[in-house]
């Protein structure tokens, strides 16, 4: 499903380039829930952005379903993102002026699919947001916001979910709820790559990949 081959990324810093990822590789297949675990600033978000086709690595390749993302132009990568990858962020990133239903449906504008309205309503129902479907994010609790973001990520039925600290702003109950949804998604044949600094969160994963600050661990390619 997702293949990351020897990618490296460094950012320009005031005292020269700052390496964030170096020779990092991983493979994640259907039914897997991978947790990238490491402290803040170790490159977890960079890794997820690169995996989602939003941040070109300095070297290496990223493939989703065998397609090399960075061999494509940005429009094609956007298409891959819309169809094959769902993003979940720590800050939820909902559009403030859209209702829950519209936020979920917004993902459908990028993709193309029939029955989006019904599917959105199903997801809202499944995530316990039916009574909130006409509320805007400012009227939701943090847990409801993250569940809305999760529903949005699932609207186009992507086989891959990239989640960046999805429980970072949630209490333990809501966090557990979200992680449970992700585990179920993986159990149903999806692939989840989860970035977290919390060991408790990582425990939900089928595999944990530690990531240390400034230097990336080379992960055996067979993984």
């Amino acid at each position: 499903m997702l293949e990351i081959d020897s990618i490296a990324k460094e950012y320009a810093g005031p005292a020269g380039p700052v390496p964030v990822l170096r020779e990092f590789s991983l493979r994640a297949g259907p039914g897997e829930m991978l947790a990238i675990q490491g402290p803040s600033g170790c490159g977890k978000t960079t890794l997820l952005l690169a995996a989602g086709g939003m941040l070109r690595p300095d070297q290496g390749a990223v493939r989703i379903q065998g397609r090399d993302l960075y061999a494509m132009d940005s429009g094609q990568r956007a298409g891959i993102r819309a169809r094959l990858a769902g993003f979940v962020f720590q800050q939820f990133h909902l559009l403030p002026y859209l209702t829950v239903l519209d936020n979920v449906l917004a993902a459908g504008l990028a993709g193309s699919g029939a029955g989006l309205q019904n599917r959105a309503l199903e997801l809202i129902e499944r995530f316990g947001l039916a009574h909130r479907r006409n509320h805007v994010p400012a009227q939701l609790s943090t847990g409801e916001r993250q569940r809305t973001a999760l529903a949005r990520a699932l609207l186009n039925q992507p086989p891959l979910i990239l989640a960046d600290e999805p429980t970072g702003n949630l209490d333990s109950e809501n966090g557990a709820q979200v992680l449970e949804f992700l585990r179920r998604f993986a159990a149903d044949g999806g692939t989840v790559v989860l970035a977290t600094h919390e060991p408790e969160v990582a425990r939900y994963a089928s595999r944990i990949i530690p990531l240390k600050s400034l230097t990336a661990h080379s992960v055996p390619s067979h993984l």
């Binding site: 989602g52 939003m54 940005s74 429009g75 956007a78 298409g79 891959i80 993102r81 819309a82 169809r83 990858a85 993003f87 962020f89 990133h93 909902l94 559009l95 917004a106 993902a107 504008l109 990028a110 993709g111 949005r152 186009n156």
Partner: peptide, 16 residues
Amino acid sequence: RSEVGILRALGFKSSQ
């Protein structure tokens, strides 16, 4: 800006 970032993450093309 953040809205644009979200939309791009959702798969919106530049043209959209």
